[in-house]
Nucleic acid binder design. Structure first.
Lengths: 244, 244
DNA sequence: AAGATCGTGGTACGTTCGTATCACGAAGAA
DNA sequence: TTCTTCGTGATACGAACGTACCACGATCTT
């Protein structure tokens, strides 16, 4: 039975089991035995490929983050530059709302990590998300570009609006998670602000004013099927399991 | 030694010990022994006044919520109706930002509870905050009043703006908690939106804005002035410690 | 062929946690 | 006074957790 085995593959398998069980029962209550059972392996195996729980946790969250980043990228590429920057911004924000299982798990686990890292300095030490300001910068750039091409009101401060949009999206995501708000109402609020930021009259040069996107514009919630299109590619961070 | 003792006083003492230790080391890692040590009593005492950990947790969070609600009420009363509704709205929002120890603890524990309640239905069953929409309704009322008196732009939807302001405040509060953002920058973003919502020129003739259907039209479930000055006053929920 | 290494299973150890049990002195009731 | 109830201490118990240890067959190297 014990042929030579692809370590990275096994680690991914276990990490995804961790993500599933953590998304189901919460990050705080996940144990090595749970992960082992979910992955269909023995406890010893989880110990073998990840020596300690902290390493397992970190790797699992990193994997989740990579997968989600890739998913957002796919979704952004799917909408393309055709419909204009507003559609791109909207896609970026909507991709972060917990509307399906994967985004729900991501939002839950990311929030759990953020809260835990407030009081647990061991967690705070690890970055988890390589650059926490990446989304803010990307969104700011999108808004600035829209302003330059006359599609967005140049009178607003792009960075402030980017911060605001992301902040609203985050809290509303949590509200959706706890069942206090529906995704539709969250989208309505976001659209309200996009209506404000993006002008409705066509700019001087020939341009097509974006359609007033309806609440249910994200019809392609599940289309791109980003699931495992590109499995993490290569992220080598070092330590192979050497023990015994 | 064992004189007759005020139970409610002891419970409060222990509950505040819970709040302190939870604010320091996180809600997830607080144990009955920690609370006992922090309160300077024996483990048995914590068991005696709260029979189970779940009851202790719930009572402690309830106490925290009451204290904070009272604090916000005091702060709102302190600013008074003199400077106008904008100052009141600003005070309401700023009071929620984690700027000192008490607001920091409240924000941290409230967020922890929210995240935990996503996957722990036992926690989700308890309301913790009596009315989660109280702040939203109060803020909406404030904005509507400002619109009626011509101090705020009647073209915006009050409820949507209230939701947005609270959502931004919440996320930015967490950002402050994790050290990603300073309170000053958060205030700057909020002020940016208050500048937008509140007009700068004095009100023209008596304005007649049409009724704008809100995202959800359950108007004013709660009067303005949600916080009562009395700290906790009477909140009887039943069970006295009867055991042995 | 022989020995070293790898992948795997089973299980034990020490700690921590929430809760339960036993005991006992002091205060109010009769 | 006597008895019952109350407040408190110390400690025990069972479960769960992360981790460590031991064993063993399969594979690779030389």
């Amino acid at each position: 039975m014990p042929k030579r085995v692809d370590h990275e593959e096994r680690r991914t398998q276990i990490a995804e089991a961790l993500i599933r069980v953590a998304g189901r029962r919460g990050l705080h209550s996940v144990g090595m035995r749970d992960v082992a059972a979910e992955a269909g392996v023995s406890l010893r195996l989880v110990q073998y490929y990840f020596q300690t729980k902290e390493k397992l946790l970190f790797h699992g969250l990193q994997h989740l983050s990579d997968r989600f980043t890739a998913r957002v990228g796919v979704r952004l590429a799917a909408v393309g530059p055709g419909p204009g920057p507003r559609a791109t911004v909207e896609a970026l924000l909507l991709a972060s709302l917990p509307t399906d299982e994967e985004s729900r798990t991501f939002h839950l686990l990311y929030s759990s990590y953020a809260i835990l890292s407030v009081t647990d300095e061991a967690l705070a030490a690890h970055p988890f998300i390589d650059n926490p300001d990446a989304a803010e910068n990307a969104l700011t750039d999108l808004l600035v570009q829209a302003q330059k091409t006359g599609l967005a009101d140049p009178g607003t401060d792009a960075r402030t609006e980017a911060i605001s949009l992301l902040a609203m999206t985050a809290t509303m995501g949590t509200s959706i998670l706890v069942g206090q708000r529906t995704p539709e109402s969250a989208v309505a609020v976001l659209d309200h602000h996009l209506d404000r930021i993006f002008r409705h009259d066509p700019p001087p040069p020939p341009a097509r004013p974006g359609r007033k996107a309806a609440v249910r514009d994200r019809s392609n919630t599940r289309r791109p099927q980003a699931a495992e299109g590109a499995p993490t590619a290569e992220r080598q961070r070092g330590e192979e399991p050497q023990e015994d």
